[in-house]
Amino acid sequence: MTALLNQQFLTALAFGQGIERASVQIESEAGTVSDARRFVREQLAIWMFSEADDFSDRVVVAASELVTNAVLHARTRPPGESELIAVTLAFKPGIALGVLVCDNSDQVPMVNIRPPVNAINGRGLALVNSLADGWTAAPRESREGGSGKGVWAFFRCPQTVGLLPRSA
């Protein structure tokens, strides 16, 4: 994935006119990953994406992996103390859809290129990389003064093939 293509997705989804957004905050706990999946499926249905569609499945699985990574690797507060993860969908009709997962960790996510064959974990971002048309991470600062990062996964809308160039 090229940085240029990721920049095109960010420009289409984070700036400009005609972008629809939906967000939810969930607790940073393993049991809430299903809440994130449900939120994404429901919002895709509101935006008229088919539930029985490869596109919707790819978006839901990628969102699930990003939230799982945030729960497993980005927690900054002690166990038992509340910590939230934000899940945002950004949709530019006819162009692209993005999933943004924000957490409180400054640690940059990295793809595990060669996880051991018998590894139980370590394939999340590799899966996101294979499902999405692009992904990136960026530091963020919250209004409350906290820091962390946002991890985006980008998807070219099914009817827009050719509007944004495919990666090499």
Rank of each mutant, 00 (worst) to 15 (best):
Q8A: 11
S23D: 12
V128D: 01
N69A: 13
L84C: 02
V60G: 00
F91N: 13
R156S: 10
V33I: 15
N112C: 07
V151R: 01
T32C: 03
L72T: 12
N104W: 11
L4Q: 14
V71P: 01
A74D: 15
A14W: 03
N129K: 10
L44W: 04
G124W: 02
A74W: 01
D54C: 07
A86R: 13
Q43E: 12
Q17S: 14
V40T: 08
A90T: 05
R58M: 09
E141L: 15
A137H: 07
T32M: 07
E81I: 14
A70E: 08
G80Y: 06
V24E: 01
R166F: 08
L125T: 01
N69H: 11
S64L: 02
C157S: 12
S105M: 07
F154L: 04
V101S: 04
R77Q: 15
V61N: 04
L164D: 07
A45T: 13
L5E: 07
E83H: 07
W47A: 09
A52E: 13
A62G: 06
I46C: 08
A62S: 14
G122A: 07
W47G: 06
F15V: 09
D57W: 09
F15R: 13
A14F: 05
W152C: 02
V60W: 00
L127E: 06
F9A: 02
V111S: 04
S23R: 15
L127T: 14
M110L: 14
G148F: 11
V33E: 02
V67L: 09
L10F: 09
C157W: 00
E144V: 04
F154D: 05
T76N: 10
V99W: 03
L125E: 01
S23V: 00
V117R: 14
Q43P: 00
L84Q: 09
S147E: 06
L125Y: 10
W135M: 10
R77P: 03
S167H: 14
L66V: 08
G148Y: 10
A138M: 10
T160Y: 07
R166I: 03
Q107P: 00
I46E: 15
H73M: 05
M110K: 11
E29F: 08
